[in-house]
Amino acid sequence: MVATNVNTRVKKHRAALRAAGLRPIQIWVPDTRLPGFAEEVRRQCAIVAAADAGDHDLQHFMEAALLDIDLGVEGEA
């Protein structure tokens, strides 16, 4: 009996979301609970950091973009 009530509410909620123009999707994300997950994140971050440190063109681009953002925010005040 209780499951039917929950199912009805879920169906009603999903119908309202669809009526609002939304659609359900399923996504898969990394399981952060797995053993070794944190170590793998650290390993990948170190690789990215090393690549970024060696890319001087990217660094100049990011600094220029940051200046554009800073100037744009100050100009709006």
Rank of each mutant, 00 (worst) to 15 (best):
G21P: 06
N7Q: 07
V6W: 07
H60C: 09
V10M: 09
D68W: 08
L22W: 14
A16L: 13
D68R: 15
A64K: 15
R43N: 08
I27D: 02
P35E: 04
P24N: 05
P24F: 05
N7M: 04
Q59V: 10
R9F: 04
T4R: 08
R18M: 12
R14M: 11
V73P: 00
V48D: 05
A20L: 15
D52E: 12
H13C: 07
I69Q: 07
G75D: 04
E74Q: 05
D70T: 09
A20E: 13
K11R: 11
H60N: 13
F61G: 00
Q44E: 07
W28R: 06
R43F: 11
Q26D: 05
A15K: 12
R23M: 10
V41D: 02
N5V: 07
D31Q: 06
R14P: 00
I69M: 08
W28L: 06
V10P: 00
K12D: 12
V41A: 03
D57I: 04
E39K: 11
E39W: 06
Q59N: 02
I25V: 13
A50C: 03
I69D: 07
D55N: 15
L22Y: 15
R18C: 08
R42F: 08
E39Q: 14
D55L: 09
A77W: 00
M1P: 02
A3L: 10
V29Y: 09
F37E: 00
D68S: 12
G21K: 14
Q59K: 15
L17H: 09
A46N: 08
G75C: 02
M62L: 15
